[in-house]
Structure formats: structure tokens, C-alpha cells
Amino acid sequence: MILQQLINGIMLGSVYALIALGYTMVYGVMKFINFAHGDVYMWGAFFAMFLAHFLGGQFLPVLILTMILTGILGVLVERVAYKPLRRAPRLVVTTSALGMSIVLSNLARLLIGSATYPMPKVLAVHDFKLGPSAVINNIQILVLVTAVVLMVLLNWFVNRSRYGKAIRAASEDQETAGLMGVNMDNVVSVTFFVGSSLGGAAGLLVGMYYDAVYSTMGYAAGLKAFTAAILGGIGSIPGAMFGGLLLGIVENFAGAFLSNYRDGIAFLVMILVLLFRPGGLFNAKIYQKRV
């Protein structure tokens, strides 16, 4: 029972972490909460659904194409809703993001429908027994492995590549980075592309795991992933990974006792963290600088 909850928690947590990375990367560079990210993730799940339908049971091509499409969507959202507001106060950008979130989720509802759709089978399910009462299936393993691989790749990208360096510079000091010849428009686009494509991957993984895709799935997932991001300290990439895992585990254990208020747990955690430890559990530097 405990082992099973732990497995489910880690599973869910790794997905939260993938979504949280999108929030945290955008926050690092642009310093605002991208409310639309949860809905970009939802669109990722829909892209994955269509791709899985056409491509059949090929996991990798579906994953890669989903990530590319969702990344492009993220960049488009940025171009339409945030780029004209580069010099606006944060309140204005946040409101625009909120509007974009409403637009994206309602577009999905109107264009695709408000039903809950099954995800076409990408893999056949096999159960593996772990001890007397715990079960793990190959989809769960795949979700976990994919999430870990993507996070390792992201770490490499941010810490080793040219654009990663530019992103780090931009999150530290935007103006100076700009003066040093970093092209801000490109950095922002790359940030949105990478963050959104991770959200898209999360959409595919969640869709596979729960076998359900629906137009309002982005809202709660987005809020929880944001909670994960602040739990680890917003703006910090390892923090988002850690926060996601922690939130997934906490939610699973607490949810086992308070099943009706399962969703409320994440919100409560979020409010508590915001109030008592707004810099996250490790007090990320980026927050202190802002205040």
C-alpha cells in the first residue's frame, strides 16, 4: 500500500515536474507567471492524441512530433500575447496570460469538443508485480523514464549549450545580457519553445497513463505544476524537478486519506509555501533579487 502510493506519487510527480519546468523557465527569463502554460500542456495532450491516432503504436515519433508542435504553439502564444507587452508592467502581462489561457482552453472545447477522449494505444499494457501489494505497469515505467531522460537533456541544454548559457544570463540580468549581445527575442522564443515542448511531452505521458484527454485538463494540472515550481523555488530548474516529485508524493499520500479534497491539497500547499516560504524550500536566489 505504501509502496504503491509511493510509486504513483513519483509517477505523478515526474509529470508535474515536466510541466513545472515550463513555468519556471519562463519565470526565470520574463519574471511573470505564464498562466497559459497549463493550457499549452492540454493542447500537447490533444496533439499527442491525433498523432498517436495517425502514427499508431510508435512512441518515439509521437513524442518528438508532439514536443515540436507544442513548442511551436508556445512560441506562437508568446508572439501574440506577450511580445507586444515587453515593456508593460507585470500586472498587464499576467492579465494577458490569463486571457490567453481562457482562449486556449475554450478553443479546444469549441474546435475538438468538451468530451473526455481516450488516448489511442501507443503500447500494450503489461503489469509487473513488486512485492505483495504493489503493481507497476510498463506505461508507468515509460512515463518515468521519459521524464527523467527529458530532464537530463534539459540540464545538458541549459548548462552546456550556447542557448542555455544565454538563457541563464538572461535570467540573471536581462539588461546586461542584452548589452553583451544576447539577442533577447531569440532567448525568449527558445525559452518558450523548450518549456512548452516539455509541457507537450507531459501531455502525452498523462494522456497515456490515464487514457483520458479533455479540454479542461490544463487548469488543475497547471496550478499544481505551478505549485511544484514555487515549492522548489521559482526560476530554479532543479528546484522544479524536486518540487514536482515532492508534490506528487505528498498529494498521493494525503489524497489517500482525504479523497474528496485531493485537489485541495495542492492548493493548500501552494498557499502555505507562498505565505511562509515564497522563495521555495531552498530559498532560490532569483526570488530574493526580485524583492
Binding site: 527569463v29 520574463m30 519574471k31 511573470f32 506577450y82 507587452l85 515587453r86 515593456r87 508593460a88 508592467p89 507585470r90 502581462v93 536581462q174 539588461e175 542584452g178 533577447m184 525568449v188 526580485r290
Partner: peptide, 8 residues
């Protein structure tokens, strides 16, 4: 102002 992204 100098171009800043989203800065308060």
C-alpha cells in the same frame, strides 16, 4: 525606458 521584459 530601456527595453525590459516584464520587469516591474
Amino acid at each position: 525606458e530601456v527595453a525590459r521584459i516584464g520587469e516591474k
